[in-house]
């Protein structure tokens, strides 16, 4: 470990994801891990990031992490609250969202997203919750950042079902379909950071988190994953990033009686 302050893999993932948001971004936030990372960004380097939630709040600044996507804390701290149809029509499809921040149950080597079923659609092994707002976010947001825990079950060669479009079978597939947004530009896990290759769009590991080996990433990926030639180490969480995240988690645990995922 090269870190000065002890931290968990989950904390590293949230911090690494938060760093990808820029001050001034307009971010459409998914619940869970993306929401933790987006709010950490807002409380650290990106105080002016605009957080939009699909239930209708625009410019939400919650004191604690919402347990669900329509918590009252989101409405109370928002600049305005609009209807769900308006959020999707004017704000997302209207082209005002620069970043979509999403989680997923399963993704593949071209960052296509599955949140519908594991197995066959008609006879699923596991029935997942479904699309939510992700198909529209993956289509229309300026770009998409994905954050999820890495395992060979979650990172598969080809998803069983494309709920929300990533880079399909790679290359210029998105632009051939005329999709307005760039699609996934980064995948942040508890082990590493991946970005799509600029030409093939195949996910490539560019940063390993401190203490994580390439073998560990390979073992947690369901295909023969490419590593960048200039593989770097992710900067460990700073004291201030860690403290801010932990305070946020503590406030959240107090408010909800337990902590949502880091």
């Amino acid at each position: 470990m090269s870190a000065q302050h002890p931290f968990t893999a989950a904390e590293m993932m949230t911090v690494a994801a938060a760093r990808l948001l820029r001050n001034g971004d307009v971010c459409f936030v998914g619940i869970g891990l993306p929401s933790a990372a987006a709010n950490l960004a807002r409380l650290t380097h990106a105080p002016d990031v605009v957080l939009i939630y699909e239930s209708g709040p625009i410019g939400a600044k919650p004191e604690v992490l919402p347990l669900s996507i329509g918590d009252g804390s989101l409405a109370e701290t928002a600049d305005t609250v609009v209807s769900t149809s308006e959020i999707f029509r004017y704000w997302l499809q209207g082209g005002r969202v620069t970043v979509g921040f999403l989680g997923a149950a399963q993704i593949d080597r071209f960052a296509n997203i599955n949140t519908t079923v594991i197995g066959d659609y008609a006879r699923p092994q596991v029935r997942l919750p479904g699309a939510g707002g992700a198909p529209e976010i993956a289509t229309c947001a300026g770009k998409v950042i994905l954050v999820l825990r890495q395992s060979a079950r979650a990172f598969v060669e080809r998803v069983d079902f494309i709920t929300s479009v990533g880079h399909l079978d790679g290359g210029d597939a998105r632009s051939r379909l005329g999709l307005p947004g760039q699609g996934p530009v980064a995948v942040v896990t508890d082990l590493c950071l991946m970005t799509p290759d600029s030409l093939t769009k195949e996910l490539t590991v560019t940063h390993l988190h401190p203490g994580v080996s390439a073998e560990k990433v390979r073992a947690a990926t369901g295909w023969n994953i490419r590593l960048a030639e200039s593989l770097e180490e992710t900067a460990a969480p700073s004291f201030s990033e860690l403290e801010t995240l932990r305070q946020l988690q503590r406030r959240t645990a107090l408010a909800h009686g337990r902590a949502p995922e880091a």
């Binding site: 529209e136 229309c140 709920t163």
Partner: peptide
């Protein structure tokens, strides 16, 4: 709406 191109 502008969605579902590429989705299953």
């Amino acid at each position: 709406s502008r969605a579902y191109a590429g989705s299953d």
